[in-house]
């Protein structure tokens, strides 16, 4: 390993790492010494890539996402987006949470509008019209034009998550961070939203970093699956490249011999090589 001060910008523009985590560790001080959550994480994500992070609870997935979001800062190493160090949250990295986090007193439209307005800060009528157009476009993107004026409590879980995704995308982030976005949904809705997210990603080619517990979801959606070892001191155990071409079709995927091989590889990592013992909770 060379010990150069900071990485020199890569030469080839094609290989330019978009999101980069270099030697990232995160620990919290406790009376008994440091508690290490993440240890030596290295990951480069290319622009337009869909990367999933999978691992048992307590493996530091959420910490990793928070580092990229800028909610916390690494104890060692650095996280950078387009060669800019990430030190604080910003509209270039939008997070979608499992619990939707919509404002209950605003309609779907208003929830999205609020976010867009805060990013674009329209000054005159033309700009305001543009903002409204962006909101409408994104409502349409997630198929919620008809439900634009409903409040969150009138929407189903799946629809709420659609609004949350639309809100995040409407701010035109460079990277979309999804924290177990479909964990709280029933299986049918979950599959519907996976299809929809895949469609949106295939159209917009936004870079996505998604945390999930679901092996099938990860294989169906991602270009690469980052499998985490167990905490404390969790790190990247293995990265699985998913070679299926886009656009993908769920039914076709299961007709591909590689699907079963990849699925079993992933299951073997999680249930054999890095299984959690029964008492862990």
């Amino acid at each position: 390993m060379q010990s150069l001060p900071l990485p020199a910008p890569p030469q080839s523009p094609v290989e330019l790492p978009f999101l980069e985590l270099r030697d990232v560790s995160k620990y919290y001080p406790t009376p008994k010494g440091n508690y290490t959550v993440l240890q030596g994480v290295n990951l480069s994500v290319k622009s337009g890539e869909f990367v999933s992070i999978i691992g048992h609870s307590g493996c530091g997935k959420t910490t990793l996402l928070n580092l990229v979001a800028g909610f916390t800062r690494p104890s060692q190493g650095f996280v950078s987006l387009e060669n800019q160090r990430i030190t604080a949250p910003g509209p270039d990295r939008m997070v979608v949470f499992q619990n939707y986090s919509l404002l209950p007193w605003l309609t779907a439209y208003e929830n999205i509008h609020l976010g867009v307005k805060s990013v674009y800060r329209p000054q005159n009528e033309t700009e305001r019209r543009q903002v409204r157009q962006i909101v409408e476009e994104h409502l349409e993107l997630v198929g919620l034009t008809d439900a634009a004026h409903k409040k969150p409590k009138q929407l189903s879980g799946g629809m709420k998550q659609r609004v949350a995704i639309a809100r995040a995308l409407a701010m035109r982030p460079q990277i979309l961070l999804l924290d177990e976005p479909f964990g709280a949904l029933d299986p049918i809705t979950r599959e519907e939203l996976q299809d929809e997210l895949l469609g949106i990603w295939e159209r917009t080619k936004v870079t996505v970093l998604m945390i999930t517990h679901d092996v099938d979801e990860a294989i169906y959606l991602s270009d690469r699956i980052v499998m985490m070892t167990n905490g404390p001191s969790a790190t990247i155990g293995e990265i699985l490249t998913i070679p299926f071409a886009h656009p993908r079709n769920r039914a076709r995927l299961t007709e591909d011999p590689q699907f079963f091989t990849l699925r079993n590889q992933c299951l073997s990592f999680l249930y054999e090589r890095f299984a959690l013992d029964i008492d862990h909770d």
């Binding site: 691992g55 048992h56 609870s57 177990e180 964990g183 999930t212 517990h213 679901d214 092996v215 999680l270 249930y271 299984a275 959690l276 029964i278 862990h280 909770d281």
Partner: peptide
């Protein structure tokens, strides 16, 4: 439960 916790409880 989440998919992985579910998996471990199934085994148990």
């Amino acid at each position: 439960l989440d998919a992985l916790t579910r998996g471990r409880l199934q085994e148990q």
